[in-house]
Design a protein around this nucleic acid. Structure first.
Lengths: 155, 155
DNA sequence: ATGAACTAGGACTAAAAGAGTCCTCGATCG
DNA sequence: CGATCGAGGACTCTTTTAGTCCTAGTTCAT
């Protein structure tokens, strides 16, 4: 129901951790223990992130993972897609734009707009941005960052 | 994985249908058949929407449902929340802002921004807007409507 | 050269959410 | 009074998510 999976969460946490811990690598075990994430599960996620070019892995003793690219160059959207697969707001959207109800579906077009908005939102935030955000808004204003007005949020 | 449930989809479809069919009511059966939605399932959804004040129901022969308020006054966010319950982008967010990892969770704050953006997006589109959208963009520009830039979307 | 500390990855299992069914009851109208 | 509706409880089936287990290959230090 419109929620990220824990895997995606864990992936983002791990990437941010690696970004914070600069150029030296961290092991899956270290990250798992720090955030209370099951090691075996986190390992899978990190492996996938490594295969998809976000991380660089080092085998053997003192091995681990480090970012393969600049943190500012990794968007939340890429990470989530990499871990959970493609994102579709509704069952209407598939890889090839097919919709089960085809012409009968009367909400596809309006939702498509919302869908694009969400993707744009996720694409607009990078791991790098997350670092800054930590320290009480340094520099970049959230408004500019997310391209949205200042309407107060409600759950 | 960041997807609306079918129930929410069905609910939006039904509301739009009722908005299109003006002041006269439509039965659950009629809507179900039109869009190929299982009747029993749709009934539950319509009942919930009625209980939450979106629809007005009429029992008995020739009964059915009609909108209880103006279509422009019903946002997608309200509908989705009404059907699926509260929306949380990650497990971090609950009714009272609690997070399982508490201080250890380093992505909560950045994701909170994304979360708010999505809510704002969903709150910005009403059933009424969906009617307009049907006829190839009449008047209101999507850009203004969704408050987002024109970056091309990618799935 | 051996063992400890890593990553890589396949195969499973358990739990939770989603989707849908079945059956009964009360209201309304003709 | 019977056909047509909505109201609603109680399930069941399926899919997704989350997490586990086990084995194999790499690298390093002693």
């Amino acid at each position: 129901m419109l929620k990220l999976t824990k895997k995606a969460d864990y992936g983002l946490i791990a990437l941010k951790h690696l970004a914070v811990h600069g150029p030296d690598s961290s092991s899956a075990k270290e990250i798992a223990e720090t955030y209370g994430i099951p090691l075996a599960l986190l390992s899978k996620i990190l492996q996938k992130l490594a295969k998809n070019g976000f991380l660089q892995s080092e085998h053997g003793t003192n091995g681990g993972y480090k970012l393969a690219r600049d943190a500012r160059d990794i968007t939340a959207l890429e990470v989530i897609r990499s871990i959970d697969g493609p994102i579709f707001l509704t069952a209407c959207f598939t890889e090839h734009g097919y919709c089960c109800h085809t012409d009968k579906c009367i909400v596809r077009d309006p939702l498509q707009k919302v869908h694009e908005g969400i993707l744009r939102l996720l694409a607009s935030i990078s791991i790098g941005d997350m670092l800054e955000a930590k320290e009480q808004d340094s520099g970049r204003s959230p408004e500019r960052l997310y391209g949205l007005g200042a309407t107060p949020p409600v759950v």
